[in-house]
Design a protein around this nucleic acid. Sequence first.
DNA 1: TAGATTGTTAATCGATTAACAATC
DNA 2: TAGATTGTTAATCGATTAACAATC
Lengths: 204, 204
Amino acid sequence: MNNGIPLTTLERFPDYLNYLRDLGCGDDDKISSGVIAKALGLGEVLVRKDLACTGCAGKPRVGYVVRDLIAALEGALRCDTRKNAVIVGVGGLGSALLAYGGFSKYGIDIVAGFDIDPAKQTEENGKPVLPMEYLSDGVKKYGAALAVICVPASAAQGVCDALVDSGITGILTFAPATLRADSRISVRHMDVAANLAILASGII
Amino acid sequence: MNNGIPLTTLERFPDYLNYLRDLGCGDDDKISSGVIAKALGLGEVLVRKDLACTGCAGKPRVGYVVRDLIAALEGALRCDTRKNAVIVGVGGLGSALLAYGGFSKYGIDIVAGFDIDPAKQTEENGKPVLPMEYLSDGVKKYGAALAVICVPASAAQGVCDALVDSGITGILTFAPATLRADSRISVRHMDVAANLAILASGII
DNA sequence: TAGATTGTTAATCGATTAACAATC
DNA sequence: TAGATTGTTAATCGATTAACAATC
């Protein structure tokens, strides 16, 4: 499944993409690795190594064609392939993510939410919030391959297991707990409080 | 400032802490690195190396005293020192974070929010949401050392600069943009859409 | 004592950086 | 041509893992 792109490189792709898209360049505009490196606070050799992984070659003395670079990064991140995602746990955070428009630039559609609380089982931003009992059916019905877990830590592993059973292949979790899942499932953990605590520790 | 704790190790501390706290152990309960390793999906030598960084020693054939380990991790993460944080940008995400209770376990208090929109300048969860003009005064008044940026990407660098000017030393940003700040300022970037896109790329 | 578990030292692995040749 | 910039190869650095001695 891995195209030989290191994870560290892949994790920088969205940063390159955001930066290059924001430049608002025309069809033939070029950019050098040095300029990108400076803007993103990276080494310029690292930038060239990263960009080589996209398959978009630069020209000595000229640099990279910005449009080509954007297209190559979008290709690597599969931005042109539509992917459906569900949100599990429609509290404050889950609700905010249901309404957030920032997923579309990666070709991701948030199609539905799930919550145990009947009071939340209505609609948010035009998207249905369904009871947890429909999780498996909903995931299949919407053809969702991705899920975002926004439930409390104590419920997260159970939700994770249910998602895996439903056929989800990628899970992003905000719950402050380590989730165990089959190695074929990709899990990424974003712990807001932990990240703020790391900053607050004064160690970095 | 760095106690010699590698960043990779520090980033695992919250995971250890969450796991150990959730065990609900008594005063004398012990645990081995192997058990922790298995629960968190890590190598057991890595766990011992990480725990050594906390200063809490284990005993051969016995393991680690869970309570001591928790105390040592809390010490490293400064959980017993109160720190104030502000949220800049009280949209869906900022609003959710103002209401989120999960920061307290790290000794962090979210004390106020800031937003340009007068409609949002009221109160959220008992916390004042102030106009952006009061950012600098508010940060000083509340003695905030930490800030969370939840504004759109286009406004993020300006907010970052203003926060640094106000005396903030740690910034957590959710805006999909790379922020540049003086090297004395710690900046951590959490891009929700980017993380979901990495999962969706199928490369991992 | 025997055996489980820690902690340390050495080896491996992967990522970043440095040096430099290739080239437009 | 001269010089800027890419891409590659080698060196460095840091993190993880393996081997094993220490010890309770």
